[in-house]
Nucleic acid binder design. Structure first.
Lengths: 135, 135
DNA sequence: GAATCTGAGTCTTAATTTTGAACTTAGATA
DNA sequence: TATCTAAGTTCAAAATTAAGACTCAGATTC
């Protein structure tokens, strides 16, 4: 987890990834949303690309020049659970109200949430869980 | 989530919370484990106390003077899901191997993991989930 | 075809934060 | 009384971040 902390332990990095999950993928759009300094944004985007969490894809809209988009890689998308858990926590313990983002079933639209489950997929209350060091 | 990012978006804060989840609760033990500078550690601990994530409890071991322990509050313990999700991600996408920490059922010892579930508690594949903005 | 616009940066300087090391303090112990 | 220790403060030096001006290359406009 130390490495995960090294990657995510930065204000801008977390916010950039949130943007990526929202589907914002262009440098200037992120800069506009986050009000991040250019040099820091460039730096963090490069770091995330180097770590394999984002990738830089050229793309072209009809009748426009080629641009670069930053999109989540497979590994990046894997952070979705962490993000949803964090949003759920914020909702419960920080903002007190509903988080502005949550997950829903793509087909039925039913709301989804993050939970602890056992090996069979049956949900387990957090209170029953113990942290366990593993070899 | 912006506020959550503000709280967690810092290398030391994430590592301090990891210590807290491991049960390390004394200033000098954390300093030793993390090799964090004293002033920074003091600063982050105070911030976490001010945010209601840790609380400072005086405690006394037999035949010893009173000391201060930093323990997770209810809100702090609520971050467990986020941490487990992050550890799970690190295991799958960063370290490649088993994470050094995971959750287990306190009674049966069965390994537990973080997953996405629907309103009835039935697990749902991440691929089925769509991020959803809420009013 | 010269001038302009735009997205995506780089560069520079100033402000802020972090670090490391030394110093402080209060209670317990020798 | 002198010493030890956990838990801090304080301070100067080093590193990082911020703000804003500048660059550059491909479209577009005049």
């Amino acid at each position: 987890m130390a490495l995960a902390a090294e990657i995510l332990g930065d204000r801008w990095t977390l916010l950039i990834l949130r943007e990526a999950f929202y589907g914002v993928c262009r440098y200037d759009d992120m800069r506009e949303d986050l009000k991040a300094p250019r040099s820091t944004l460039t730096d963090r985007l490069n770091m995330l690309v180097a770590r394999g969490i984002l990738e830089k894809q050229p793309y072209q809209e009809a009748g426009d020049r080629v641009r670069r988009a930053y999109v989540l890689t497979e590994a990046g998308r894997g952070l979705a659970l962490t993000f949803l858990a964090l949003a759920q926590w914020g909702e419960a313990h920080v903002t007190g109200g509903a988080a502005p983002v949550g997950a829903a079933d793509r087909e039925t639209g039913a709301p989804l949430r993050v939970a602890l489950v056992d090996a069979n997929g049956a949900p387990v209350d957090l209170g029953r869980a113990a942290l366990r060091l593993r070899g």
